[in-house]
Amino acid sequence: MSENARLKFYCDEHRCISCDGCSVACAEAHELPAGINRRKVITMNEGILGLEYSLSIACMHCTDAPCEQVCPTDCFYIREDGIVLHDKEKCIGCAYCLYACPFGAPQFPSDGAFGIKGVMDKCTMCAGGPEETNSHKEREMYGQNRISEGKVPVCAAMCSTKALLVGDSAEISDIYRERVLSVGHGVKTQPYGWSTAYGSKI
C-alpha cells in the first residue's frame, strides 16, 4: 500500500457471475439482521442478449462522501485509509445519508412495529466502528473488524471469479488496466482449446 492509499472497491462486470457469494458472506460474517443488505448484487438488462451484466454493490467509501456532508449529527468519520465509517450511537436514523448516497448503501433495520426505522447500517469495509477495536461491543454493533486483523474484507476475499476487488485505489486500477489490456493475450479469458492443452503438433 502506498503512502496516501485510499481503500476502494471495484467490481469487474466482465467477471461477475452474480452468484451472490459476496453478499451472503457479508451477511453471514457480520450476522446482519433481516432486511439489511450491506452488499447487493444487481443484474442490469437481465436476459437481453449482449447487454446483460451483473455488479456487486455496497458502500463505495466515496472520496468527499456525500453521506458525510449531509448527516445532521456529523456522525461520519473518514479514516486515513479512506474507509467511511459512522457512529451508531450518534445516528438518529433520519436517512439523509441514504438520500445523498449515489449507491443506495445506507440501510435501516425495521425497529419493531409500525415500520419505524432504526439507526443506519452500511458496509464498514469490514473495519468495524468507533468502539474499541475488536471489542464485543464493536462486534455487536458493526460486525467483524477484519481490517484490524490484517484480513481482506470478507466479500472480496470470497469472490471466486475475483470480480470484486478491494484495496489501494491505485493498485486496483492497475489490476483492472492489466486485465483490459491482456484480453486475448496471456491472461486466459477463453477456455483452453486443443492447441493450448495438447500443443499444436498433434
Binding site: 449529527t73 457512529d87 450518534k90 438518529i92
Partner: peptide
C-alpha cells in the same frame, strides 16, 4: 441541528 445536540 442534531450535531449541536450531540445526536444520539
Amino acid at each position: 441541528f442534531a450535531s449541536t445536540f450531540g445526536g444520539g
